[in-house]
Design a binder for these strands. Structure first.
Length: 295
DNA sequence: AACGAGTCCTGATCGC
DNA sequence: TGCGATCAGGACTCGT
């Protein structure tokens, strides 16, 4: 396994470390685990929002009616969404987009740039959403309306609960001729997969990212399902390191970036066969793969 | 109707 | 050293 800074192909260019910055399913799961014991049983007392819009408007009346003063019963995750279910049927939903960070801060908390939403618990602690790119969202409403009001309703099955199997994937891909990379990135097919994990899973499963889903065999689907589960579970274990940060407030990174086999390694040797990994541009996204191992 | 392209956004990094 | 161009990508909308 590789660790530490990575040197790019050009000898004179500066070294740089590849760090997975985008919050993905494992990071949201780690976040959920760290927040649940702190939030369950508590109530929000007040909130603040910035004037700059996020991906979806935040309803102040829904907040007052359904969230404010209501006991938080559960903190759950659906794909990359985090849901706080409140007593009385209200739900507070977060999505971190690409650059979102959600942290529970002690009082008083220091000001920062790009903070778009803050909610204060009765004890004064602050749940803070910081999101420079504003691809994220915070939404308040009835839990029963989540599916209609939010993209959550269009999500495919959770990859880990229960663990994906090849049969399920193959059935869901019926009638599609999409490239497997694009198909996996669509949350309507499988919830919560981003570019990093799709790249990794395809590499582990030894499947070419441009392969059409209607051309995948049953055993390829099985390998793919197993690989998705494996890479997510390993990342959750690594994300457990990040979990500590939310509690002690020190910004240590997770460790999964050191376990990447393909993502961010274009031009470097495949760990399996030694051939240089290639970078294929698909729909503006990079897809690193091994031309030798992934067919 | 499925699929691919374009869109939003800012910070980090790149090349000149 | 400074500055503009490019890249990153989740999930939407839109056109074909």
């Amino acid at each position: 396994l590789e660790s530490g800074p990575k040197r790019s192909a050009h000898p004179k260019s500066r070294t740089r470390t590849v760090i997975a910055k985008v919050p993905e399913l494992p990071e949201i799961e780690a976040l959920r685990r760290s927040l649940a014991p702190e939030l369950v049983g508590r109530r929000f007392e007040s909130f603040w929002k910035s004037r700059e819009p996020l991906r979806q408007p935040f309803s102040v009346s829904a907040w007052r009616k359904l969230i404010q003063g209501r006991t938080i019963l559960e903190v759950r995750r659906r794909g990359k969404f985090l849901v706080l279910d409140c007593e009385g049927g209200g739900a507070l939903l977060f999505h971190l987009g690409m650059s979102g960070r959600l942290r529970l801060l002690p009082q008083p908390a220091k000001p920062e740039r790009h903070v778009h939403w803050r909610g204060w618990l009765e004890d004064g602690r602050e749940l803070r959403l910081r999101d420079p790119r504003r691809f994220g969202l915070v939404w308040a409403g009835k839990a029963e309306n989540l599916d209609r009001a939010c993209p959550l309703g269009r999500l495919g099955p959770e990859p880990l609960d229960p663990p994906l199997n090849g049969q399920v994937l193959m059935c869901r891909a019926q009638g599609s001729r999409q490239q497997v990379k694009a198909w996996l990135l669509n949350g309507a097919n499988v919830a919560g997969l981003g570019n990093i994990y799709v790249t990794e899973a395809l590499h582990l499963a030894q499947i070419h990212p441009a392969k059409r889903v209607n051309q995948l065999t049953g055993s390829a689907w099985e390998r793919l399902a197993t690989a998705v589960v494996q890479v997510l579970e390993e990342a959750i274990r690594c994300g457990g390191t990040t979990l500590q940060d939310f509690q002690d407030g020190k910004g240590r990174p997770g460790s999964f970036q050191y376990r990447l086999l393909a993502y961010g390694r274009a031009g470097k040797p495949c760990f399996q066969c030694g051939a240089p990994l290639r970078d294929l541009r698909m729909g503006g996204r990079s897809s690193v793969y091994c031309a030798n191992c992934q067919r």
